[in-house]
């Protein structure tokens, strides 16, 4: 039965259902229950933003609050995964990868290849990403490109509650290490979500809007902004006249090149939207691939709409400027259409 759930609820439900389905699924992270060792309530937090709330009591002994010690517990989750468990480790903010990156990219990402195919590491690392939370430079980054760069990792970034549940279930069932990026400003976004379990396959982009004039590629929070831009630009909008096809990549590794290329072959124009910084970003990656594969189909220059090459600022007035806006996306579409 489909109900309207927030992305926060959808993620919680995915974890709950997978824990019920498979006893090897365990959760690890800082304050994912909260209140350990104190005199007050256990499961006091359920994660810093309440995403895992309630699971501690539902699945006794399988929701492990960790010390503030990312190297150790992310590494332990990876080790446990290599030994047959299916840990879902919460890194809280993806920015914290700075203190445990070795375990992710030198260990988890490499085991399968480095050990000649004889190991598998079915771990999911959940982490919050993205700006707009007034959390400044060390808690707001969109570091998806760093992980996408690394062979052996899979990188997922849902744009809505329905996808979040299905992609997280797939992440848990998947036998490779998955970095599951949750945009903190989407936690309260709502969608119809089936009560039953379902898995959305990786490497399948979602064409969220059909259009023949310009392709917009986006993921995460940027999908909504791209849709807003597309709406503004469509014939009934004030700017008039352009029908955009909007592609939600959903997974950045693997990435669905076919859907992007098919679309650009039809539209001849491409705007890549990425909340990450511009250099070596998903936007630049998609742009390069399209330039290589669709050169003859292109009718105008590919345009990228990204955050600037700066850290995320604190002051709301600056942070709002930092995050790519629907207006910026629409302007980029208009610009490529003009040529």
């Amino acid at each position: 039965m489909a109900r309207t759930l927030t992305m926060r609820q959808a993620i919680n439900e995915a974890l709950d259902q997978e824990m019920a389905r498979d006893q090897n699924v365990i959760l690890m992270g800082e304050d994912i229950a909260g209140g350990q060792g104190g005199d007050g309530e256990l499961d006091a937090w359920g994660g810093p933003l309440g995403v895992t709330k309630g699971l501690y009591h539902k699945h006794p002994g399988r929701v492990l609050d960790t010390p503030l010690s990312e190297s150790a517990f992310i590494g332990a989750a990876i080790g446990a995964a290599a030994c047959g468990m299916r840990p879902v480790a919460e890194l809280m903010f993806l920015d914290f990868m700075g203190v445990c990156f070795d375990q992710i990219f030198n260990q988890a990402a490499k085991f399968k290849y480095m050990f000649g195919g004889k190991a598998q590491t079915p771990i999911v690392i959940r982490a919050m990403v993205g700006a707009g939370f007034r959390a400044a430079a060390q808690h707001s980054q969109m570091l998806t490109p760093l992980f996408t760069h690394i062979p052996g990792l899979k990188v997922v970034c849902p744009s809505n509650a329905y996808d979040a549940k299905g992609l997280l279930i797939q992440s848990i069932r998947d036998n490779d290490p998955v970095i599951f990026c949750e945009h903190k400003n989407l936690y309260d976004s709502q969608a119809d979500v089936p009560a039953e379990s379902y898995a959305i396959p990786f490497g399948e982009a979602n064409v969220v809007r059909d259009g023949g004039d310009c392709t917009i590629v986006a993921y995460g929070l940027m999908v909504g902004r791209a849709m807003e831009a597309a709406k503004q630009l469509s014939p009934k909008g004030p700017k008039g006249g352009v029908e955009c096809e909007v592609i939600d990549l959903r997974t950045l590794s693997p990435i669905d090149w076919d859907t992007v290329i098919d679309s650009v072959e039809r539209t001849g124009r491409l705007v890549c939207v990425d909340e990450a910084n511009p250099r070596c970003s998903i936007a630049s990656d998609v742009s390069a691939m399209v330039a290589q594969e669709c050169f003859k189909a292109l009718k105008g220059p590919i345009r990228m709409v990204t955050a600037p090459h700066t850290p995320v600022p604190f002051s709301p007035v600056l942070e709002d400027l930092y995050i790519p806006s629907a207006a910026a996306i629409a302007a980029a579409v208009t610009k490529t259409m003009a040529q």
Binding site: S71, A72, F73, I74, G75, A76, A77, I78, G79, A80, A81, A82, C83, G84, M85, P87, D102, Q103, N106, Q107, K110, F111, M114, F115, K118, A119
Partner: peptide
């Protein structure tokens, strides 16, 4: 990087100190 998980050998490791958390994970499992 020699490893043989069937023998419980989780791998030699080129990163010094990296094996300690992994062993914790094995112990946790």
């Amino acid at each position: 990087h020699i490893a043989d998980l069937s023998k419980g050998m989780m791998g030699a490791n080129g990163i010094l100190g990296a094996g300690a958390p992994l062993a914790c994970g094995a112990a946790l499992a």
